[in-house]
Amino acid sequence: MGHESDSNSAGNVIRAERISKVFLHEGTEIWPFREVTLNIRRGELLAIMGPSGSGKSTLLHTLGGIEPPTSGGIWIEDHCVSSMSEKERTLLRRRRVGFIFQSFNLIPTLNVLDNVSLPLTLDGISAKESADRAAEALAKTGMSHRLTHLPTQLSGGEQQRVAIARALVIHPAVVLADEPTGNLDSRRGRDITSLLRQLAHDNRQTVVVVTHDFRVASQSDRVIVLLDGHVTYDGKPGSDEELMATMRQESEA
């Protein structure tokens, strides 16, 4: 599957080289990001920050292969995502990329266990194995007691835990989370952040989180700040005040 890279030797799970994305809206070109180069290591928890409309989510979706970049190259593990067909990207997502959304996006007509085992079922894995692995993933996120419930019967925090289990069940190389705490109160948000951090460090899984929340960013290994489609900061998170100051400084500049 995909196209092999000969320069992925530094332990990078995701490598993006000079990637750009452009949309046409009523005849006007909109560039969510331009010429972004990024390397993300195995087991790293990376936070992408930036003001609304700065292109964070589009960058995340492009890195995960939901949308192809307009130019530049992206590699996930050894696979060149940017030159893959739609079907190849779908199969890569199914097996190597887990997604978590702010609005959970669980299937309302499936119970918790079926929701989590969905990616495995899609991959043709037997029902029993899928169910076992889903139960295992749910145990890791503390949702073993809710296997037969429908999403509408869960709280927001519980729904997000199920969504995280669904992302983990495939043992992905990378988990991409788009504002995973945006719909949760601060306590539940903290729990989810801890869970993501634990994933990255214990399982050596790469986690990329798009967030507005400085507390989430402060728990990450690395933060990048996106402004007007460009990476303006790439480094350690530091304190909330430091990050805020950095963003304000870049914004004013």
């Binding site: 079907k87 779908t90 997502r93 997604f99 996006n105 969905l118 899609l122």
Partner: peptide, 16 residues
């Protein structure tokens, strides 16, 4: 549409 989009994101092919 939303459910189908989620399925596609997590790996359902168009054929599926």
């Amino acid at each position: 549409q939303g459910q189908l989009a989620v399925m596609r994101i997590i790996g359902a092919t168009d054929d599926q």
